[in-house]
Design a protein around this nucleic acid. Structure first.
Length: 253
DNA sequence: CGGCTTTGACCCGCGC
DNA sequence: GCGCGGGTCAAAGCCG
């Protein structure tokens, strides 16, 4: 046995075998085949485990959604005005939903593009700041009837040029969740991309998993968001599963 | 000193 | 018409 180190290319480029035709001993090939089978088994186990975790996460999300919708219904029957009910429903089924039309009950105010964003914060963080890359000026704060946490009112710093307003209030059910409601569209570029707390994720990007691993090590909030993104992508994006498999196999080897 | 936050007062729509 | 409650204003205070 001379040089025991050899290169495995997993047959990704069959042309290489034609170029390098030096004979490989059968024992070595058998050994390698056996090792690859083991690795394949390990990979299958990892994927099964990942799939199980995803399923349990999805079940959990569905349970939460059901809980929320039941609660909303109760609230609407008891105390909430129609307007407030409509506003809260924006956040029930997703973390980010665009609503094209404002409440018809307010004809005075022609508002378009109302959107709601739920942001998970650390429980110790008591501020009402949702970093989204724009600069905001707080112009009011109010304690509302249905929520003990005060609602903060913000205007874009570019006002009056920029008509965008933002309302931020903690969720009644989970005070670590900040619910930000945006009204209108910015008519200017984003002043600072660096301050964005919630990152946008391109799950079709092959380098996504590497970025994901880095993020896990640096930011727990981002970690939670990215896990949600992954769970969502597993169901919505067929190529994402392949990307995950590739990345995992990369880690294993 | 300028910009931002705080906070009480005021406005206005909605339901009764 | 009245009261309630959400949204906004604006003066005062704070901070870099």
């Amino acid at each position: 046995m001379g040089n025991k180190s050899f290169f495995i290319d997993l047959n990704t480029n069959p042309l290489l075998h034609n170029i390098n035709r030096s004979p490989i001993p059968r024992e070595t090939l058998d050994e390698e085949l056996s090792r690859m089978r083991k690795e394949s088994k390990k990979l299958a186990t990892t994927l099964t485990s990942l799939s199980e975790k995803y399923n349990s996460l999805q079940t959990h999300i569905l349970e939460l959604q059901q809980k929320y919708s039941i609660h909303e219904e109760d609230n609407s029957k008891l105390i909430l005005s129609r307007k407030r009910k409509a506003e809260e429903e924006y956040c029930v089924n997703n973390s980010y939903i665009n609503i094209e039309e404002a409440s018809p009950k307010r004809p005075r105010e022609i508002t378009t593009n109302i959107s709601t964003v739920c942001v998970k914060t650390s429980p110790s963080d008591q501020t009402s700041v949702v970093k989204d890359g724009y600069n905001w000026r707080k112009y009011g704060q109010k304690v509302t009837r249905d929520n003990p946490s005060p609602r903060a009112y913000f205007k874009c710093s570019f006002a009056p040029t920029c008509p965008v307003k933002k309302k931020v209030q903690r969720s009644v059910k989970d005070t670590s969740i900040l619910v930000a409601t945006y009204e209108g569209e910015h008519n200017h570029p984003q002043p600072s991309q660096a301050e964005i707390t919630v990152p946008s994720v391109n799950t079709t990007d092959p380098t996504f998993l590497n970025k994901f691993m880095e993020d896990i090590n640096t930011n727990s909030l981002q970690q939670q968001y990215l896990v949600e993104q992954m769970a969502s992508s597993l169901s919505k994006n067929p190529s994402f599963a392949a990307t995950v498999a590739t990345a995992i196999s990369g880690l294993l080897f």
